[in-house]
Simulated scan of single mutants.
Amino acid sequence: MSSFIKRHRWHFYFWAVQFLGWGGLVFIAYAFTPDMDGYKASKLFYYGLASTFLIGVLTTSLLRSFLKKVINFDAFDSKQLLKILAGIGVAALLYFGLSYGFGHFVGKFSEEHVKVPEMYKDFGIGLLLINSLITIMGWTIFYMSVKIAAKLNANRLERAELNSTLKQAQLNTLKGQINPHFMFNSLNNIRGLMLEDVEKSRDMLTKLSEMLRYSLTKNNMNAISLEEELEMVDNYIALSKIQFEDRLDFIKEIDENTLGFQIPPMIIQLLIENATKHGISNLKSGGTIKLIAEKTENLLSIEVSNTGKLMIAHNSTQLGLKNIKQRLRLLYGAKASFMLKEVNGEVVATIKIPLS
């Protein structure tokens, strides 16, 4: 039953408002009609209220069917406006004709002899017609207002869904940029060691396999735990140390309370990879990469520093840096930040991610 209502909720809402609206109008008419000369206690009066309700529901329901066929908010023009006004006019005439005819029929054949109050003697056909037009016009304005509001809400939801789809597509593209970069460096390392040390090459392939499995299984996610990301970082460092040996020193300072926090996958690994490629590999004596993760107020602060100087080649695409910035912007908007600077002979990259 609930699924049926969900599929037909707009029809349900319309009929609910339709009956409640006309019922409310009848109640107001009953409450504010003066009880003069016994008119309010007569059957004729109650027949009039019933006819107002039934004729109102019938007339405006027919008008609604007409408006649904005529109105196209995506291409609204003057022709549609003229059709709407014509529909209102016809509906008002129908409402007036049915009301007047029913009133005349009941008044003529009713067995009650009710003295009509003096105030109704001047209530002529013209005034009845104007009253019918005002009633139908008011109903139409309300109906159109609801339709416009529903259309605007539908457009808003459609734009939100489109933006979400676009954002997801952009994220998938960005994530796709990480894997080839990572694979290229790893395969280069394997190629360099293949002829020198088979055992090390085999160990390298094992680490590479674990990292590739990780990247493939987490590639469709926008967030993973910090603990999972650190496992991949440890694999990458172990892989890199086979190449750099004593030239690479890795220090890790992780607040244990942050291990369960969610972060974008492979974002720390990319920072570590950049620190290795653009920092340590350019130093003959090697250097140190330090990873710090801690909670500061309502933010997760991730800092990766490496020995060296901040030098960006003119022909560099800075793909890694752009990748990080775009992913943070797409996922967190202005709430997240990324900063890269040189401090006392070290290159320091800092990411801050909101925790809520």
Results as ranks from 00 to 15, higher is better:
Ile148Ala: 10
Met36Pro: 00
Val116Asn: 08
Ile353Asn: 05
Val198Tyr: 08
Tyr120Glu: 01
Asn153Thr: 11
Ser186Phe: 05
Ser215Glu: 10
Ser145Asp: 06
Asn282Lys: 11
Leu248Lys: 00
Ala293Gly: 07
Pro354Val: 10
Gly23Cys: 08
Asp255Cys: 03
Ile5Met: 12
Phe96Thr: 04
Tyr46Glu: 01
Leu355Ser: 08
Phe53Lys: 11
Phe338Leu: 12
Val114Lys: 10
Thr52Lys: 12
Leu283Pro: 05
Ala313Asn: 15
Gly260Trp: 03
Tyr332Glu: 08
Gly124Trp: 01
Gly279Pro: 07
Leu44Cys: 01
Thr217Glu: 13
Ser285Leu: 03
Ser225Thr: 15
Pro34Gln: 10
Asn282Glu: 15
Tyr236Cys: 08
Tyr332Pro: 13
Ile125Gln: 04
Asn315Gln: 14
Leu44Asn: 07
Asp74Gly: 09
Arg156Gly: 09
Trp22Asn: 12
Arg329Phe: 03
Ser42Tyr: 10
Ile254Tyr: 02
Ile324Asn: 12
Glu161Pro: 00
Leu319Glu: 09
Ile224Pro: 10
Ser225Glu: 13
Lys40Pro: 05
Lys335Gly: 03
Glu294Phe: 02
Val114His: 07
Thr140Val: 11
Ala29Lys: 04
Asp234Phe: 00
Arg156Tyr: 11
Ala150Cys: 06
Gln269His: 02
Ser65Phe: 08
Glu273His: 09
Leu283Ser: 09
Gly286Asn: 03
Met204Ser: 08
Arg247His: 05
Tyr47Glu: 01
Arg9Gly: 00
Lys79Cys: 04
Gln170Pro: 01
Leu62Ser: 07
Asn315Lys: 13
Gln318Trp: 05
Ser65Val: 05
Glu346Val: 01
Phe19Ala: 14
Leu187Glu: 07
Asp203Phe: 03
Asn179Ser: 09
Leu205Ala: 06
Val17Pro: 00
Phe142Gly: 14
Thr217Ile: 10
Leu67Met: 12
His113Val: 13
Ala349Glu: 08
Leu283Arg: 00
